[in-house]
């Protein structure tokens, strides 16, 4: 077993509806999907976000696209037009979720997602 942050295994996207945020987590293969279905429960996500999410967390499965969707109540300081938060729409909550660490079998621990290569940005910025 290895202990890995979800950022090594999954894609993510967050969205908002009022004071409710959702974060989707995407697995790249069936084995990883089975792993996150087992490990990333609604209760763990609720605990991970602590005081940031005041209300309930519900989890939904979309096996056709190997995704889990977490719906978090009371997660945006009152909702976009009311919130004092810089990230009033919760766009960064996906990144916050993939900090969560889970136990990963050795068979999957080698499949880490690559790190960004932005050398093309240097070419533009140095011009």
């Amino acid at each position: 077993m290895a202990r890995l942050a979800l950022r090594e295994l999954c894609g993510y996207r967050a969205g908002d509806k009022g004071d409710v945020a959702n974060v989707a987590l995407f697995a790249s293969d069936d084995e990883t999907y089975a792993l996150i279905v087992r490990e990333v429960t609604a209760a763990r996500v609720k605990e991970h976000f602590g005081a940031m999410v005041r209300g309930r967390v519900d989890r939904y499965e979309a096996a056709n696209v190997r995704a889990l969707n977490f719906v978090m109540q009371g997660a945006l300081g009152g909702g976009g037009p009311r919130s004092l938060r810089a990230d009033s729409l919760g766009k960064t909550l996906g990144g916050a979720l993939v900090r969560l660490e889970i136990d990963v079998p050795e068979s999957l621990a080698g499949r880490r997602r690559p790190r960004p290569d932005v050398s093309w940005a240097d070419e533009i910025l140095d011009a």
């Binding site: 989707a24 995407f26 979309a62 190997r66 995704a67 719906v71």
Partner: peptide, 17 residues
């Protein structure tokens, strides 16, 4: 790709079913 599209599929969605 399916991967870029699934990111949007669940965007601002609650129960996807």
């Amino acid at each position: 790709s399916t991967d870029t599209l699934r990111h949007q599929l669940l965007y601002e969605v609650h129960d996807p079913a």
